[in-house]
Design a protein around this nucleic acid. Structure first.
Length: 860
RNA sequence: GCCCGCUUGGCGGAAUUGGUAGACGCAACGGACUUAAAAUCCGUUUCGCUUCGGCGAGUGCCGGUUCGAGUCCGGCAGCGGGCACCA
């Protein structure tokens, strides 16, 4: 018997699929369409295990749907713009384009080695002018539709590198590369009006039934629609008591607690705070201190709450003798509401922490129902639940919702406020002061203002001759690129040098795949045929931003006539990460898994010097911790099918997967076992065209029934993304078929049919091995072109079943009985069991619960 | 800090709608084959006790609902994802 040669076999079938164009799409098909898409990769250099997992899952879905009778679109492309290319340029002097295209070439080869059923004719790269020129057209459409606009906003500015930094690039208030203290700066930036669709993006979540509930929840919270009220307060100078002209407008969701207000606070970026800082050095210093936290909401909210007393006072609108101090506080966000709040420490934990720190009053105005209001006090924990309003004048005695309503009405009556709905969602800032991105196609003219680039002049292409030897945006430094004549008046003008956020690139690539070479961004016939994506697969880390931006983009594209639908992804699956143990040497330096080995006594040592190795817990594979395994090495050593099977076995796809050598070996052993079962079966196989024998022995019948149960179960599992269970079921069937003994016609027939079923069912997971075995079983049609097997419903139900018998809820035995036996039969069979009698200890049954075909529970 | 998840044997996990906890795989141990090793095949394997018939405990922790809870409810802990310029 020949050994399974995976190298030869995998190359052979990849060549055959390629020659026959097996996976190239045909829109003329009369089959129903099915669009399966995995999140396209960033071309970082080489594929990693996360890619292998993602694309294996997608390929299983694509191949399964194809077999199940669908016209499947399964494309691949490259999310090719972004910072790492510029970092490579700076660090190694290689041009971003060269670096990117060379990475793409490498990674394309690696993906092709995986044997994915991808239509490579549709490949796109977002850094290619053939892609981004259409993105520029979309931008111009959005500009025309008032969905794109320019405004000033705050950024993290690195004064040394002369660039804007992402929050993750700001470490302890300093730039990651330069080490310079970062500043907050206001910069004119381009925005997309995501908030135009706040309500729609929120309400439409309910219709995304094939999305994970938690993703919908996260998006709901992200959009953050809340009902509340604006309230305008009179401001006074605290020392003079004089009333000021300016009013302070706050937003609150707890207007019911207005009588518990003991202070007000401004965001450090509130215009009033800026005005105060202009005349008050201490205020300016405080604001500067707040700015050092950067723009990250996480950093701001996790920081200790601090404030600066402005010396101004706020007058209570209904208790007019009361004035409370006005602070500037680091935890008030300018981006949310009005950038100013009133503080009610008794009923908000953050306000309470702040009040305790600055010695402010705490006045409870909502008391729990079961407590005497006179006795009720707030200590370290704010009372945030519903209760009865107290100390609140015209609100006393109401519950929280009632008080909100009454207060809202009163605010409107007195014209000092009104109820409102606000959102946490902000417009999407897409400006990046970087080279390697899609140029924003506008021109700044001194006379005409902002002038869109005429559509006939698109694309606005990136210049190739750029230098990264000085700080700042290379496009801005380029000697000629930005100098153009104004399309409107012809005078000298300047191109916009900002490029787009790479999230823009990935917000419509799924639409471009439908007609990747079209002259316009989309071809309406094609997108109408293929969209929505039936199954989208990617990491949970994209649960909010990428998916929300894509949902927004689809709506915006619809408004501009490029697509006919709102929701791009009908089904979504979010996969877990791939993890590995971490290793460090004596000096604490991280080690790659292939630098260490396990000794017989179980301890780990370095291969080079046999030095001691500390094993850390398993974490998501990352270059920085070196706990990575290169997929190419696994594919070289064991083949793509082994890597694919391992990715699907054992761990449910939504959970994190632990990469282990032992698991890989297990997958490899199974492949060889299947190979042997076909190459050297334990007994004869019936001819391929043999008819079913008239009678089956018990063993053959049992195996034949399992074939059908497995087909049924695996089909259901694949529909529900339970790949690990599907693998387990196929292994069970493999075991039983392998155990079949004898050379009778019935056994020989079931043996053949069993093997064929195993090969067909494992096909989407291990396509190369399956094609090879299918051929060796005597078929001359590609397995990839064979219809998915169907289970015979008659073989799925058993005549006798075994159920558990409990006494007082504890299992005391099992009993076999005919399926759908009546209660009396079940009860008497159950009571007759030795273990049951023993457990009953002579006591009469008080009650016998019989759940047909499930369980009998005797209560004594 | 806020939002969202996850937690079952030595390990990855299975368990339909609340109905026999541990399928399938890994590892370990015992055996067969072999001059030997690898590979392969067979067997054992939740833990504790056991007179070997069984008995008791057990799904992160505490409590509740139920004839019956891994599954439902309340509280807690640990770990992870996201927090708007990484992709």
């Amino acid at each position: 018997m020949s050994r399974y040669n995976f190298k030869e076999t995998e190359a052979k079938w990849q060549a055959i699929w390629g020659e026959r164009r097996t996976f190239c799409v045909d829109e003329q098909s009369d089959r129903p369409k099915y669009y399966v898409l995995e999140m396209f990769p960033y071309p970082s250099g080489r594929i990693h295990m996360g890619h292998v997992r993602n694309y294996t899952m997608g390929d299983v879905v694509a191949r399964y749907r194809r077999a199940a009778g669908y016209n499947v679109l399964h494309p691949m492309g490259w999310d090719a713009f972004g910072l790492p290319a510029e970092n490579a340029a700076m660090e190694r002097g290689v041009h971003p384009a060269e670096w990117t295209y060379s990475n793409i070439a490498t990674m394309r080869g690696q993906l092709q080695q995986m044997g994915l059923s991808i239509d490579w004719q549709r490949e796109i790269a977002t850094c290619h002018p053939g892609y981004y020129r259409h993105q520029q057209e979309l931008f111009l459409d959005f500009l025309d539709s008032d969905l794109a606009y320019r405004k000033e906003s705050w950024v993290n500015w690195d004064p040394v590198d002369q660039t804007v930094l992402a929050n993750e690039q700001v470490v302890d208030g300093r730039g990651w590369r330069s080490g310079a203290l970062i500043e907050r700066r206001k910069l004119a930036q381009w925005f997309l009006r995501t908030t135009a669709y706040s309500d729609d993006l929120l309400d439409a979540l309910a219709k995304l039934e094939r999305w994970p509930e938690r993703v919908r929840l996260m998006q709901e919270n992200w959009i953050g629609r809340s009902q509340g009220a604006y309230i305008r307060f009179e401001l006074r100078d605290r020392s003079s008591g004089k009333s000021l002209d300016d009013r302070l407008e706050v937003f609150t969701t707890r207007h019911d607690t207005l009588f518990g207000m003991t202070f007000c606070a401004l965001s450090p970026h509130h215009p009033l705070a800026a005005a105060l800082a202009a005349e008050d050095e201490a205020a300016a210093a405080f604001i500067a201190e707040c700015d050092r936290l950067g723009t990250s909401e996480a950093a701001i909210e996790a920081a200790e709450k601090t404030g600066y007393d402005t010396g101004l006072a706020v007058r209570h609108p209904f208790d007019t003798d009361r004035v409370v101090p006005l602070y500037i506080a680091n935890f008030v966000l300018m981006e949310y509401g009005t950038g100013a709040i009133f503080g009610c420490p008794a009923h908000d934990q953050r306000d309470l922490d702040f009040a305790r720190k600055y010695g402010l009053d705490v006045i409870p105005v909502v008391a729990p129902r079961d407590v005497d209001p006179a006795e009720f006090a707030v200590a370290d924990e704010a009372f945030v639940e519903d209760g009865v309003l107290v100390n609140s004048s015209f609100l006393d005695g109401l519950d929280v919702p009632g008080a909100k309503e009454r207060m809202a009405a009163r605010l409107e009556e007195d014209r000092i406020g009104e109820p409102t709905t606000i959102y946490r969602l902000r417009d999407w800032g897409i400006s990046r002061q970087r080279y390697w991105g899609c140029p924003i196609p506008v021109i700044h003219c001194e006379a005409c203002g902002i002038v869109p680039v005429p559509r006939g002049d698109l694309p606005v292409a990136l210049p190739d001759d750029v230098a990264f030897d000085r700080p700042g945006n290379p496009l801005a430094h380029h000697p000629t690129w930005k100098h153009v004549d104004c399309p409107s008046c012809g005078a000298g003008a300047q191109r916009e040098t900002d490029t787009m956020d790479t999230f823009v690139d990935s917000s419509w690539y799924f639409a471009r795949f439908c007609s990747p070479r079209a002259e316009r961004p989309t071809n309406r016939d094609q997108v109408d045929y293929w969209l929505p994506v039936d199954q989208y697969i990617g990491g949970i880390e994209h649960a909010i931003l990428h998916l929300l931006y894509s949902r927004f983009f689809t709506r915006a594209m619809r408004r501009c006539g490029h697509v006919s639908l709102d929701e791009p992804f009908a089904g979504l699956f979010t996969q877990g990460m791939v993890c590995h143990e971490t290793y460090r040497d004596q000096r604490g330096a991280w080690l790659f898994p292939n630098e260490v080995e396990r000794r017989d006594d179980g301890t780990m040592v370095t291969i080079s010097g046999q030095g001691p190795v500390t094993v850390g817990r398993s974490e998501s594979m990352s270059k920085s911790k070196r706990n990575v395994v290169d997929p190419e090495r696994i594919i070289d050593a064991y083949g793509a099918d082994t890597a694919r099977l391992f990715m699907l076995s054992d761990t449910p796809p939504e959970r994190d997967l632990e990469w282990t050598d032992a698991g890989v070996e297990g997958a490899w052993r199974y492949i060889n076992r299947l190979w042997r079962m076909v190459e050297a079966p334990a007994g004869p196989l019936a001819p391929g065209d043999a008819a079913m024998p008239d009678a089956l022995s018990d063993a053959a019948d049992r195996a034949w029934r399992l074939v059908h149960k497995t087909i049924h179960g695996v089909t259901d599992d694949l529909d529900k993304f339970r790949f690990n269970r599907a693998v387990a079921r196929i292994r069970e069937l493999t075991n039983l078929v392998g155990e079949l003994e004898g050379d009778g016609d019935d056994v020989a027939w079931v043996r053949r049919r069993g093997l064929e079923a195993v090969v067909q069912l494992i096909g989407p997971m291990m396509p190369h091995l399956a094609e090879e075995l299918w051929q060796r079983l005597g078929h001359d049609t590609l397995l990839a072109d064979i219809a998915w097997p169907a289970a015979d419903p008659a073989l799925l139900v058993e005549d006798t079943i075994t159920i558990g018998v409990q006494v007082n809820g504890k299992l005391r035995g099992t009993v076999e009985m005919p399926r759908d036996a009546d209660r009396e039969t079940a009860e008497s069979l159950a009571l007759a069991l030795d273990g049951v009698q023993r457990a009953m200890d002579g006591k009469p049954p008080r009650k016998v619960i019989v759940v047909p075909n499930k369980i009998v529970n005797v209560v004594v």
